[in-house]
Design a binder for these strands. Structure first.
Lengths: 139, 139
DNA sequence: TAGCAATTTGCGACAAAATTGCAATTTATA
DNA sequence: TATAAATTGCAATTTTGTCGCAAATTGCTA
């Protein structure tokens, strides 16, 4: 079985959460796609009620399993850095595609410096770059 | 009168929009606070109906007067770079306060490089840093 | 500054999104 | 497999966001 699913189950149990079908399916759906809206999730998990999905998203968020994002307009969720390399996103205005960007330590350093210059302690951050993707530029 | 309000009125007129009380108050509310949710705005503009606020937010957005942000969870709006220096945000987990961060050209450069490294053309971006603010760290 | 045309507003009705209580089901454990 | 506890699905409800329309406001011109 997928190493990450093992880790996910362990995390749930450690925090006194049951491993249920709804939670597993939600996790797997998130593993498959970079960033999903609640609407997408409801569509992809037809066996489960909206309320179950909402409740589990809230639970996952508290456990640090997922992170909420802003992609242009709607809020979306994706697995947190616990289950993925840390990364930022590029959203194309034209085709709407969201792509994960490669890690960049120079950028991460600048962000860290910016927070500490204000005497703030950073726990995390989120960057979205918007514009035109390679394919749409070619058209 | 405030230079920015003059600019705001001019922009409306140029685009065949009337300068109304609702629009002025909305603009002024946005001038006063870094990032406001729709809920906040509805609370701060009790003389105006929700639908008016929604409609004007939509209109302002089309005219490029405001930008939508995602601060953690709810989407918020603030005046665009047209009326403010370009900046990013820090949100405190504990007190919830949102502060504007100073401009940083090294950071901006890294962001630009990251986009072009993927052959994407960046139009804009948004960064939110989260953590603990100075005051909350002191407590 | 009165009057006209065009836009905007507030209201009420709706539609969509998100939350909640509770009985029935599922899960972990022994 | 029995039991206790957590979770789910469902229905009801609240919260958010949208829309049409009559009345009011705005910009313009005489």
């Amino acid at each position: 079985m997928d190493v990450e699913i093992k880790q996910f189950k362990k995390l749930l149990r450690k925090n006194e959460h049951y491993v249920t079908k709804a939670r597993l399916r939600l996790f797997i759906a998130l593993q498959k796609t970079p960033a999903l809206s609640i609407k997408d999730l409801v569509k992809r998990l037809p066996k489960h009620d909206r309320s179950t999905i909402y409740r589990n998203i809230t639970a996952f968020e508290k456990l640090g399993i997922i992170a909420r994002l802003q992609m242009g307009w709607n809020s979306k969720v994706e697995l947190s850095d616990m289950f993925q390399h840390h990364h930022h996103h590029f959203t194309c205005h034209r085709c709407g595609q969201v792509m994960n960007l490669p890690e960049n330590s120079a950028l991460e350093n600048e962000i860290a410096k910016l927070a500490s210059s204000q005497n703030c302690k950073q726990t995390d951050h989120q960057l979205e770059i918007r514009g035109w993707c390679k394919n749409c530029l070619a058209d």
